[in-house]
Design a binder for these strands. Sequence first.
DNA 1: AACGAAAATGAATGGTATTCGAGTTTGAAT
DNA 2: ATTCAAACTCGAATACCATTCATTTTCGTT
Lengths: 216, 216
Amino acid sequence: MQVSKASTKSRVALRQERNREALVQAGYTVISQKGIDSATMQEIADLADVGAGTVYSYFKSKDDLAVSVMERVMHNLALRIEEVTNTFADPAQVYAFGIRTVIDHATGDMRWKQLLNRPEVIADAMFRCMGPFAIRDLENATQAGRFKVVDARLTWQMASYAIVGVSLAITKEHLPPSLIDETVVRLLCMTGIGEAEAKDLASRPRPALPPEKSRL
Amino acid sequence: MQVSKASTKSRVALRQERNREALVQAGYTVISQKGIDSATMQEIADLADVGAGTVYSYFKSKDDLAVSVMERVMHNLALRIEEVTNTFADPAQVYAFGIRTVIDHATGDMRWKQLLNRPEVIADAMFRCMGPFAIRDLENATQAGRFKVVDARLTWQMASYAIVGVSLAITKEHLPPSLIDETVVRLLCMTGIGEAEAKDLASRPRPALPPEKSRL
DNA sequence: AACGAAAATGAATGGTATTCGAGTTTGAAT
DNA sequence: ATTCAAACTCGAATACCATTCATTTTCGTT
């Protein structure tokens, strides 16, 4: 039965928490520097200061680790966005601010470039981690009569892949960064709001994001 | 100096053509059966009846071969679509028919499922191979006053990734196939045509595609 | 203090993309 | 017809890691 230990957590549980956290951090550091393919499990394990085999008691595979890394990135950004938008009155503007901010980060932050090389991983992470917010916004805006979205999940699935595709094209310089505005307009058009309204929404002033909490 | 040979092509050039063709065919066969990752260069080389090392005088890498395979698939489908749509009067309908047909194939043809596992490869191939047609259609429809597309390249970049994303979600059963209609509507909305018109366009009857030329 | 289950370790394994030196083919020149 | 160098092909050997697993270490319990 349970004993002494003031803390509810055993030493093992604490170490496991540290290890998992260290692995996600290390994974992020290495992957955002060299890309998933060039990152080796050895390097990540070394940086996290655990044995190479230990990684596999925390993650099923290299890809599984990468998924966790990207989910973390997405979740953190989603929370920072939420901190700004929860003061907005117009649900359509919340959505517009969200997608705009994601694209800005994806194209402006060097650390995202390598992550984009696995579009399905990052798009899926985006779909899952930001989905609860994005889908809620799409539905709110639809109920408010601003958007005309039939299936918010579908719309967000399309949007997340489109965002990744455009971000990739911009970082690879197939498209100029100046097209970000137009990208937002197009994504808003997708919601059925109409072109004029979309342009208006996209050009609203955008407050600054709060700073990152940790190194992620 | 040039001798006899009626044909302008040397024996080497002919063999190289055969080899490249055989490799693309073999690559398609193997990859669409087992997916890029499980497909081995050895198996592809064997099926194409060339040495394993020879593949590398035709393609820089496994991925490079995969790109050629997908480009071929896309190009063939683009031509088949073109054969139907070149009789259409409305350029907007040409675009609508195109995206609809691509999604139908991506989700309905078992052979595409494996290809979708490399979204950036297939989306890029789609962008490049169908782009000339799609971009032309977007511009025609815009000039005709049907669409309101500012940058057709951007719109097609977004559309190609969104198509791949939705197709993936449907084949993985994260979304029901019944959402294909709505997907087309959303992609049309992206062109700025407005929701009502988009729905009308998406529900037009669609003629059948001509049969595949070869085994691709 | 001693035990044993759970967790961690890192050397060994296995699978395969890619390289490379040897062997072949080709076709212009003789 | 023969020759020869260049171009091409071959497949065995290499290199590289993700992943596994036999061994060692840790830690809560007795």
